[in-house]
Design a protein around this nucleic acid. Sequence first.
DNA 1: CGATCTACCTGATGGC
DNA 2: TGCCATCAGGTAGATC
Length: 278
Amino acid sequence: MPELPEVETIRRELEREVVGKKIKSVEVTGARTVRRQKPKELIARLEGMKITGAQRKGKYLLLVLDSGDVLVIHLRMSGQLRRAVPKDPKEPHTHLVISFTQGGQLRFVDPRTFGEMFIATPDEITSDIPELSDLGVDPVETPMSWVDFGRLLRRKRMKLKAFLTDQSIIAGIGNIYADEILFDAGVRYDRDTDTLTTQEIRRVYRSLVEILHDAIKYGGSTLSDGQYVDLNGKPGEYQSHHQVYDREKQPCRRCRRHDIVKAKFANRSTYFCQVCQV
DNA sequence: CGATCTACCTGATGGC
DNA sequence: TGCCATCAGGTAGATC
């Protein structure tokens, strides 16, 4: 479900809603949500702690605690974080509930159960947990120049879409935003990184920054299945700004004369305009 | 090293 | 109406 813009939207809400709150109790009911450690250990390291910060690295959310520990959350395909009060009916697939001493709850809901939560020390995050320590640059958190971006690109030899979605190079871009970025830049998904001209590199990077920030501005994308919602259950609005994603056979919004094509790349759908992207 | 495929799950959708 | 195949925002791991 969520890519950088959706996770960033949630992070900003967490900053307002849970930072400063103290954890009274934690209930783990899902069998798979806490799988790197015993739920008991996670609960023990959470209860009684105050949340002091809400950070994001790529698609990972990090809730920093006053104990020094960090609660790491990855939503994967269908995970949601929802604000609630104890009397709210429990939605199906609610796997973990954090209750605050100030009242109110943070609930983790995840139908497909790919999402996970674990608690780690900052040291473990920077050096021991490969997915996190090997994470590439977060283009929103740590802006770079297009020249730096070009250096990253020149170091690799792969298909452009694979490059953009490789979390160990650039963190946060997934299937939707890769397609939107490539359309905006006018470059095909299957171009080899070593064939891009300097101008194309500059265009791809400018599009990358613009699309991600624009998507954050609109609160991310919610597709027809309505899976992505924010802390308050509100869907995003960026889907109506999509130029290609999920627009197969609909006219290209740039050239207006050709239909968006859906192709398979790396076993997933890729949407593009055969005329506007070269 | 990169490309490709599978697995992990539930639920929605569309064809027959 | 029901049954079955296919697909979905992500990622890790196996294999070539």
